[in-house]
Amino acid sequence: MNASNKNILLEAIELKALFDRLASEIKEREVLSGPFQLVGIHTRGIPIAQRLAKLMNRDPDQIGTLDINLYRDDLSQASEMPVVKETEIPFSIDGSRVLLVDDVLYTGRTIRAALDALTDLGRPKSIALLVLIDRGERELPIQSDFCGKKVSVQPQENVKVRLQETDGVDRIEVIDRQA
């Protein structure tokens, strides 16, 4: 590991506390306004949604998964062929209160695409957004309803969420792409 271009933002234990806090915030909100259905955005939104479901004593297999590739606004700008992943919603979108889950909120374009993808599948009563990290610098008027941590980083820096399920380790890093 190269220490010079990598800063650890959150270690596993801090990440655990962050998940606990988000789960209790969701539950608090549900007391006021009714239950949410969790929908994770590929790739890391899915394990995040599953962990939150477990913390709230719900079946992690009952979360929805959403792939936004078919709704992207930059298809032809990709240099490689896009890998389309599975969209599977095990409940009816119509009339449900959806909580979209993703790892990092940045430009807002992923969420814009996710809103289109979701509303093509039905008419939810409402859609809210949960992210682990909000790094600012939005290009669209999109904000989160639940946010694990707000950070301020430079444009050339990447916020990388690493999770056991996808990366073999629980850690959030800031990586300088120019270093």
Binding site: L70, R72, L75, V83, V84, K85, E86, D116
Partner: peptide
Amino acid sequence: EFIFQTTDRFREVGGRPIKKVPAL
């Protein structure tokens, strides 16, 4: 195999009530 993997995703679109996505 890559083409088939992508095809599996489009079968899901073909099974929706509204069989249209804005990809192209």
